[in-house]
């Protein structure tokens, strides 16, 4: 027996590695594990050179863009002056509306809206795999980031933090197949779950066939999962397929955030 094992030791060694990998895989599928001490240590060592090179390249890009900015400054200045005049006009109207809104809220005894603390972060790494959609940002637990913090931009939701180390954090994008965000259609408050669909699209799941969802409808976060603030844009409806057989319709969502051009994000910090 021992002779047989010794004779086939290479085969059993490989088999052992396969079994260990399978066990890790099965455990992670069942319940995604957070980083262990060694994971955090390895990742911090691994990501530091990328972080430094990204920051250097970003600096160079800023300097280069600054040069072009100066070249086109005069032209842009006159355009911006006109733009500011327009915005000032709009601002005055909005101030009036805000005051009216405030009065009405006070009248109706509405609770004061929860103010979220946000921390800006820079992207220092993208998923090396073409099939999973994550990014790595340059802020970590020492900046107050924890697992399940929401990540947004002024355009809309980016994703949520799934792993944190001392100096970096991994963000699961809303386009990843493991992602799910509770959402409502802005126009008629129809509910659904925005799930990652791969290839930079999402789908709105569990929307009944009877719900009135139209092309270009905007989806916003419902605020129910306490990860994202309420009312943050997610994307627009790009395709609808009404299923005659089932209960739910197929709704494809195009995220408002352009993930390819994303360089900076805002992390919504958890309030304890």
């Amino acid at each position: 027996m021992l002779q047989f094992f010794l004779k086939k030791k290479r085969f059993f060694f490989l088999l052992g590695l396969f079994i260990i990998a399978l066990i890790f895989f099965a455990r992670d599928i069942e319940n995604r594990k957070t980083y262990t001490f060694f994971d955090r240590l390895f990742l911090d060592v691994l990501i530091t050179p990328v972080k430094i090179s990204t920051l250097c390249i970003n600096k160079a890009v800023h300097i280069w863009r600054g040069y072009f900015y100066l070249v086109d400054l005069k032209k842009e200045n006159s355009f911006l002056k006109g733009y500011i005049e327009n915005l000032e006009m709009q601002n005055q109207l909005l101030r009036e509306e805000a005051l009216e809104n405030k009065r009405l809220r006070e009248l109706l005894s509405f609770k004061k809206k929860f103010a979220h603390t946000m921390r800006p972060a820079e992207i220092i790494g993208r998923d090396p795999s073409s099939w999973f959609k994550t990014i790595i940002i340059d802020k970590g637990s020492k900046d107050g980031l924890v697992r399940d913090c929401g990540v947004v931009t002024p355009r809309g939701i980016v994703g949520r933090i799934i792993d944190v180390t001392e100096a970096s954090a991994k963000v699961l994008l809303i386009t990843d197949v493991n992602s799910a965000v509770d959402a409502v259609v802005k126009r008629n408050r129809a509910r659904g779950i925005v799930e990652g669909f791969g290839e930079n699209t999402c789908q709105l799941s569990y929307v009944l066939n009877t719900e009135d969802v139209l092309l270009n409808d905007v989806l916003v976060s419902s605020g129910l999962n306490s990860i994202y603030p309420k009312g943050v844009s997610i994307g627009t409806v790009s395709r609808i397929v009404k299923n005659k057989q089932g209960f739910f319709q197929f709704v494809e969502i195009k995220p408002l955030v352009d993930f390819a051009k994303l360089n900076e994000v805002l992390v919504v910090l958890k309030e304890f």
Partner: peptide, 16 residues
């Protein structure tokens, strides 16, 4: 293992 640290893939998948 290193690949999975920086990726969103579940642990063990890329090792496999």
């Amino acid at each position: 293992y290193l690949f999975e640290l920086v990726s969103g893939a579940p642990h063990g998948l890329y090792i496999l």
